[in-house]
Every structure is written in C-alpha cells, then in structure tokens.
C-alpha cells in the first residue's frame, strides 16, 4: 500500500493510545498492530521504520521492538 497510507494508519493508532500512560500506550500500539495487521503490512511497516522513520509518531517508533517479526 502507499507509504503515506500505511504511515497514516499507524499514526492513527498511536493517536488513540496517546491518552494512555506511556508504557501502556507503547504496548497498546504494538498489540493492536500484532492483532490486526497482516504480515505483509507489518513487513512494510518495518521497512519504512528502517528507512523513513520520521513519517511516524514517536509511539510507533517506540512500539517497533514489541511488534511481532515477520517470518
């Protein structure tokens, strides 16, 4: 999918979790992505986080390590 759309979707999730305490928010973002994003979408996310991470909300960047890797 277009990088802009993927980044927007990730950032929308982060926006919701901003109203939670920090650690809960980071876990919340990661869990939401783990639960609902198909591996192709997570692969693209990892790819963009590696190359273009200023597109993302800081919460998404922090959540990266808790997002399940794609085989």
């Amino acid at each position: 999918m277009s990088p802009e759309k993927l980044a927007r979707m990730a950032n929308q999730i982060a926006t919701f979790f901003h109203s939670k305490p920090h650690d809960e928010a980071v876990t919340g973002v990661a869990e939401h992505i783990n639960n609902f994003w198909e591996p192709r979408m997570r692969a693209q996310l990892f790819d963009m986080l590696a190359n273009d991470n200023e597109k993302f909300d800081p919460l998404v960047r922090e959540a990266e390590s808790r997002i399940r890797a794609v085989n």
């Binding site: 999918m1 639960n35 609902f36 198909e38 591996p39 192709r40």
Partner: peptide, 15 residues
Amino acid sequence: EPGLRIPNMLDAAVD
C-alpha cells in the same frame, strides 16, 4: 497470523 481486511486486500492487489 491475522489475514487481510478488505481495504488491505485491495492495497495488496495493487501491489
């Protein structure tokens, strides 16, 4: 693993 949702299917199709 969760599968693709309808909008994601269409994105993956375009990809």
